[in-house]
Design a protein around this nucleic acid. Structure first.
Lengths: 110, 110
DNA sequence: TTGTTTCATTGCAATATTACGATAATAAGG
DNA sequence: CCTTATTATCGTAATATTGCAATGAAACAA
């Protein structure tokens, strides 16, 4: 039905899945990578860089902002976006923990 | 239009986004975490453990398999699933690289 | 004020995802 | 062969996501 049954999972599982979802689109990956390289940028730059319409970029920026991954500061008529270091560190830690939890099992099936 | 314009992004960006998407659902996170703990399991166990219908679990397992994150071995009438260590290591490396690329910028906007 | 620039929001169409009942498919035991 | 057990697939309904044209909102300059 397109509706995730989030009530049957733990908060941690829902949160982790939400974090993945925030980065589960090439445009948002591209925005993040551009922000890492340029340190900061405005909407217009991304429109030129990525080749998506301005409302589309704006929407992706909104999702990244909702996820806490970026922050936007109004500067005159434009908005300066950059990575939010605190949330970034949280993502890094949580993702790292997930992958570190698996210790290459020697007794798999088969 | 619900259709991602993947042709305007790099292969790496599309691939990384696809990797995130494979884990962007709490059920798939739960399955992976269960596999880490139990080392291996069959569909029926997950149906009991997660409380989703059998076809739903089967579908999520299929997506994880398509992503290369898990492998399934037929054992009699059931199928034994476990984590695929090789792809797991790739994910770990790629995710790690993404997050390591950002070096806490001191000169953000604002 | 009027115009310009820049970004956000709205509204919509097209496609994707999620979930499950019903039904196949396969293997094992009689 | 028939039955049971287990998983995969099909079909479908409900919801979510993606993308953009049109429009709105805010800051600035003249």
């Amino acid at each position: 039905m397109g509706l995730t049954k989030s009530e049957i999972f733990t908060d941690k599982q829902n949160k982790l899945a939400g974090m993945m979802k925030a980065l589960a689109h090439p445009a948002r990956i591209a925005i993040i990578q551009y922000l890492i390289k340029a340190n900061a940028c405005v909407n217009g730059q991304l429109v030129e860089e990525l080749g998506l319409a301005q409302p589309t970029i704006s929407q992706h920026l909104k999702e990244l902002k909702n996820a806490g991954l970026i922050q936007g500061t109004i500067e005159g008529t434009s908005v300066c976006y950059c990575i939010e270091p605190k949330t970034w560190a949280v993502y890094q830690k949580e993702f790292g923990a997930l992958f570190a939890a698996y210790r290459g099992g020697d007794s798999c099936c088969g």
